[in-house]
Amino acid sequence: MEITLRVWRQPGPDAPGDFETYRAAGISEDMSFLEMLDVVNEQLIAENREPIAFDHDCREGICGSCGFMIDGQAHGPQRGTATCQLHMRQYTDGAEITIEPFRANGFPIVKDLAVNRKAFDRIVESGGYISVATGSAPDANLIPVPKATADRAMDAAACIGCGACVAACPNGAGQLFTAAKLAHLNLLPQGKPERYTRAEAMVDTMEHYFGSCTNMGECSVACPAEISLDFIALLNGEYAKAKLRSRRA
């Protein structure tokens, strides 16, 4: 099939950007969206034009490197699917597709479709861990964890850190990402001792980089790992309790 692509091109973080239009012929429905971009890039190189920069690595929907806005939707139209797992059979011959980078204050543009998501590392650095030095752990089966709890923690831990939640949010908020990590750790017995310090540190750091959450719910719709909005409620609860405790202390 043949498609028309409007692509945001921006040479660098501070340079102005604009859309350019490319036509891609010979696209097969078995191609992934990124393979379609590979074809366009090969074509651009053949014409002596610089290929489109976009982050990607695993191409299996797990590393969280890929992702941009496809016709205004983070990761495109298919639910629960990262850009690299989107396939061209979702489109029909003659389709026109617009792609542009994730846009959020917390994610400065690097080039074309690539953005800088370091702020996510900062949030984890501030408290998204359980403090246990290597070699100091007791036997793994010493603390039983109810299956339902472990499963729920895993649901949250499945976040791939791609940033689609921030990009989809009209406020550019980082709640879903932060909530997923906080819930993963705070739900488990191993995470309880640092529960409140973690909640406070992570939320405060998040607020430094990202906008505020007004419960629009767009984040969860865009999330390729289908992280539930419930975790944001959990985050709010944990944070409120943490604040209360630190005020008392």
Binding site: I130, G135, A137, P138, A140, I143, A150, L188, Q190
Partner: peptide, 22 residues
């Protein structure tokens, strides 16, 4: 042996049985 202990203590959500064991 130690790897599994370490990972569980860090909060790696390994699959569990209904009794709560790994």
């Amino acid at each position: 042996l130690q790897i599994i202990d370490q990972c569980v203590a860090q909060g790696v959500p390994f699959a569990r049985e209904y009794g709560g064991l790994l």
